[in-house]
Every structure is written in C-alpha cells, then in structure tokens.
Design a protein around this nucleic acid. Structure first.
Lengths: 330, 330
DNA sequence: AACCGGAATGTAAACGGTTACATTTAAATG
DNA sequence: CATTTAAATGTAACCGTTTACATTCCGGTT
C-alpha cells in the first residue's frame, strides 16, 4: 500500500500540517521536529503525491511540450533543451506527439489542460487559428517555437527565417549560380512563405530574375524526375531546400541519378541538423539548432509564470551560414 | 476561472454524480439527460481534471517512459512506437530524459511515482541493481527495453543481441575477413557483453582465432589513431561496431584519414538507425528498430495492468542482417 | 502571579473528481 | 389502486495534499 502524509504524521505523533510544512520546508517548524519527521519520511520511503498537491495548489510544476514528431532529432533537440532547463528549475515536462496533425494537436492541448500543466511549449508546425483561439480563450500560458501570425501578439522564439533563406541563396549567387531551384514539400505555411520571401530577396538585391518552373513542391522523386528531364538551358545549377531533410533526400535521389554533388549541383539546406555535418554529407546550411531554443522557450514560459504574463515576448535570433562542401566552395 | 464538474451539474440541475456518469459514459443514465449534460459540457468547454480523477481512482491512464537521450532518434523511435500504442488505448505518456545517469534515472522513477503513473517503460541503458530493487520494493509495473540480468525475472523486450552480433561478424567472415576489430565506447555493460559474446561465437564456429589488440574501447579518435598506427600485418580489414552511431563516427574518422570504406575497411554496425540507409552512407547493420519494441513494450505493460501482473514476459526477437554497401559485398 | 505575544503545532475545509449507498421515479404486476 | 421492482438520480465520504485559521506552548514583562 502507498504511504501517505497521514501515515507519516501518525508515526511521528504530529499533524499532517506539520509534515506538509516539513516537505515544503517551511521555516515555521522546529529543527528538532523537522529532523524527526524527515527520519520517518526516509524510513517509510514517502513520496508526496504530485497530483494531490497540484489539486490543492493549482500548480503542478509541469509544462507540456507538443511536437509533430519525437523521433525527428530536430525536435528531439528542442525537447532536450527544454527538458534540461525545466529540470534545473524543478519542473517536469510532458511530451506529446502530434504527428503533424492539427486535430490531434488540439486534443493534446486539452490533455495537457486536464493535467493542470502550468504552461505549454509547442512547435508551430501544426498549429492553426482554431488552436490559437482555444489557447487564448482558455488563458493558457504558452510559447511557440517558430514564427507565427495571429490577431494577438504571442510569445515565440525563432530564428530569422527570411534572413536565413536570403543568406543561403545569397551564398549560391555569390558562387555564380543564377538558376537556383527552391525545393519544398507542400509546406503551405507561414514558414515556407518566409523562406521563400528570403529566396526572392536574394535575387532582387542582386538584380537577378527568378526562372520559371524552379519552385518545386512535389515529392522528392517527382522533383528530381522533373530536374533531370530539363535540358541544359533550363536545369538549375543549384538547389535551396526548405530544410535539411529535404536537402538530404534530394541529394540522395540526385546522386542515384548520376548527378554529383557539388560538381553538377550545389545544395544548401536549412536547420543544420546533426547529420548535415557528417563527413560524407557535408551539407552547407543555415544554423537553426533547436536545443538553445527549447531552453529559451522554457525560460520565457517561466518568466510568464513567475511574474504575470501580461506582456508577450518575441525572440528572433540571427541566422548563421554554415559553409561545408555541398556547394563546392572551400 | 476553471469550470468544474460542479458547475456543469448546477447548470444542468443534476448532481455531480450524474455528470460524472456521463463523462465516464456509464450506461445507467438516460439518453435524454446524457444529451442535456453533454450540451452543457460542450457549451462550458468543460475538461475533466485528470489529476483529480487519478486521485480518486488511483489510476491516471498514464505511463512513464525513461530514456537516456530523447534527441537520439534511436530512442525517439522507441518513444514514438510507445506513444502511438498508448494513445490508441487512451493512455498518455510522460517522457523523462535520464541523460545516461543512473542517479537521475532513480529520481525520474520517483517523479513518475509521485504522479501516480500506472506503469513505466524504460531503456536498460541506465539502470542498475539499486534501481531495480526500488522498482521491485515499490511494486511498480515496468517493462524494460533491452536485456537484463536480475535476481528476479523482469518484463522486457529485446532483439537477440548475441545472435545479432554473431550474424554481423559471420557476414564479415564469409566475405573473407579474419582480422575484425570490435569497436565500442566503454560500454561496460551487459549489452556489450552479449554482443561481444556473439562476436566471439562467430570466430569460434568458423575455427578462427581473435587477434590480440582488436578490442577497441577508447574514444573514436583514439581508436582510429590506433588503427592507422598498425602495420599491414596487424591492421584489421573490418570493423564490427557496437552500434550504428559508433560505426558512423568511425567511418567518418577513417575516411578523414584516407582509409576508404569499403575498399580498405569493411564496417558493420548494429541497430539500423534511419541514417544508416542514406545513399552516401549505406551501412550494413543489424536491424534493431525501436518503434516496434516501443509498441510491444506498451502492450506488455497494458497486459500487466489489465490482468494482474503475476507472470513476467520476456520477448526476444530474431535479428535481421541488413546488407548494404559498407562491406563491399553486393 | 498574571498577562502578553510570538512561535510551533493542530484542525478542518478546500481542490475536482468517483462511487458505495440511499433515495426517488416510474413502469409493471396482481 | 396498492405494491413491487428496476432504473435513474442524488448524497456524501473519500483520494492525498495545502493552508487559513484556531489553539497551545513558553519565555519575557509588569
């Protein structure tokens, strides 16, 4: 049977209130009794029940994290950063996997609500207006990982996506590329929009025109089939991929078709996932490691919780170009 | 303010018991009242509080998962499999990141206890005798992912590690290799022991002797330095790595030193992590994908919880060799 | 010796659900 | 129409904490 605060109190010959005071180390209990109670707590292996505690204090020292895919190391890093920061502050995290599904995301939020989490950290990948409305109406403290547009200001932390894309494409332009494909995967969202803006900006500021037919948003196989079917005139000499995963799968498919990287095709990604640095891959990309963001995200949340959450914070970090070998430079 | 079951009851003009029956869809409430209550629940956006519920039922429909490193996709997959299975059965999971730290693991277990989780799924990577004793004494239902030795039988699911290692090395032997290094990273544990057993077995059954000095357990840099310092006589022609991560980092370091894979050195890994299949990597390895295990693990746990947990289950799956290009065969 | 005040401790009502048991309701039976 | 019975609903105790408020204790003042 589970040992409760009452068992401890009984054994010590004190009241539950006193035991409660001891485990919350209140200063209004004698050292002598504190010691006595502690001894019994140890002896009994008493662990205070967090749920009961939360029920009475309305705070569970828990924050929820919702990501689209836990097995994607990109999000794994985000979680790790947040978990570490949380842990250091005596908070625990509950992780939910939304599977890139907005419906499930909303359900996940309710699950977290039903557990009295103090706040939520979420990736923007699977959030829609309805979800934001729900968060707003229910006055749930939350921080988003990624940029967002909404009728009210929200807390978020993100890299400057437009600028990152611009830098990536600028890098290609500086290397002499003029036909640069934009490869994505039907990411019909704000993020894609921002990065595409950056892509355009790089062209504009260099007085270049974007070729027709180089916005590729089908499956990788389709895109690559498309590319190899182009004649020398049309075929891009470089690819800017929406993210590293897309870059890598395109690289793989291209190589399978005898197109060498970087000799025949330069490639830049976005995110700088861990594998991008692997010797045999060596992807040039924009740094967007999530661990730091996870940490920052939690800190903002904590700030909201401790102080009051009246003002929102937006943190946008400056992107960094990581030059490796996939563009042939260096 | 948060809306409670009492608010709903009041508004409907029924008792809390009835509302409770509705949300638990008990069959002893009229369709008519059920409908009426439901409407108010919707209208109010009432979400039953899981913690309060758990407090009175002693069951939270939650299982905890403890892994050493969430940002490692190997564990990510494990989590994903478990999360999916849990979700399908109306369970939620709390994920804790132990950071390969046995002390933190024990603390994590207590955290989960304090939250009244129904059971725990854990990787064996950071478990010691003391932890197992704690689990045992506190009668916590748990399932381990990986093999284990303990004075009592425990539930676990694992690939047959010895057999997997044997198959991997056998593959190398069949390709004509006689000097095969065993590369690990101070994994001074049961898993390593098992895989090393398999390594030996492959030698034994083929009437071969293991060369001296080919058990490499330093850092990657050290190991590779060690290898390239060997003369043609001693230098291994193949590597069996404790896992894919170690295989990959050795491959990278070797290539950096001008040793080509597979021409100069054949490599086999263990685990078949996702990146092992990448075109430019093409690592031959033993399949040990965790998603299926996560699922199985949860199912065992569920079985323990629903029925009673008197008998333990050990599931050991047959390993599968995945032949790619890192050994030059094919 | 009576009194005071602050520190230590105790009492009991929350927190938001569930559920055994009690009660009401309504239909079925003689 | 009175009685029985089963179904629907209500009452209140309980799950394990916290905490406002009440009480006791004890040394210090007059």
């Amino acid at each position: 049977m589970k040992v409760t605060i009452r068992d401890v109190a009984l054994k010590c010959g004190v009241s539950v209130a006193t035991v409660s005071r001891v485990i919350n180390n209140s200063d209004q209990v004698t050292d002598e009794t504190k010691k006595r109670v502690m001894k019994v707590i140890d002896e009994f292996g008493f662990i205070p029940n967090t749920n009961a505690r939360g029920l009475s204090t309305r705070s569970t020292n828990t924050v929820g994290i919702i990501v689209p895919n836990v097995s994607n190391p990109f999000f794994g890093e985000l979680i790790e950063g947040a978990e570490r920061a949380a842990s250091e502050n005596g908070y625990q995290i509950i992780i939910l996997n939304s599977g890139y599904n907005t419906e499930k995301t909303l359900r996940d939020i309710m699950v977290l609500q039903s557990r009295d989490v103090d706040g939520i950290i979420m990736s923007t990948a699977d959030i829609d207006e309805k979800t934001l409305d729900h968060l707003h109406e229910n006055e749930i403290p939350f921080v988003l990982m990624g940029p967002i547009q909404y009728k009210y200001p929200v807390n978020y932390v993100s890299v400057d996506n437009m600028e990152g894309a611009r830098m990536a494409v600028e890098h290609l332009v500086k290397l002499g590329h003029k036909k640069i494909a934009y490869c994505t995967e039907k990411y019909d969202n704000y993020l894609n929009q921002l990065r595409y803006e950056g892509y355009k900006k790089a062209f504009d500021s260099n007085g270049l025109e974007i070729q027709k037919g180089l916005y590729l948003e089908d499956s990788v196989t389709e895109n690559v089939k498309n590319i190899i079917s182009m004649n020398k005139e049309e075929r891009p000499t470089a690819i800017f991929a929406f993210n590293d995963n897309i870059a890598l799968s395109h690289m793989e498919a291209l190589e399978r078709n005898g197109i060498r990287i970087p000799e025949d095709m330069a490639v830049v990604g976005f995110d700088n996932i861990r594998f991008a640095s692997y010797f045999s891959i060596q992807l040039t990309t924009i740094d967007n490691r999530q661990e730091e963001f996870g940490k920052k995200g939690f800190e903002i949340l904590l700030d909201i919780l401790k102080n009051d959450g009246t003002k929102t914070q937006q943190i946008v970090t400056k992107p960094q170009l990581v030059v490796r070998k996939s563009c042939g430079s260096k």
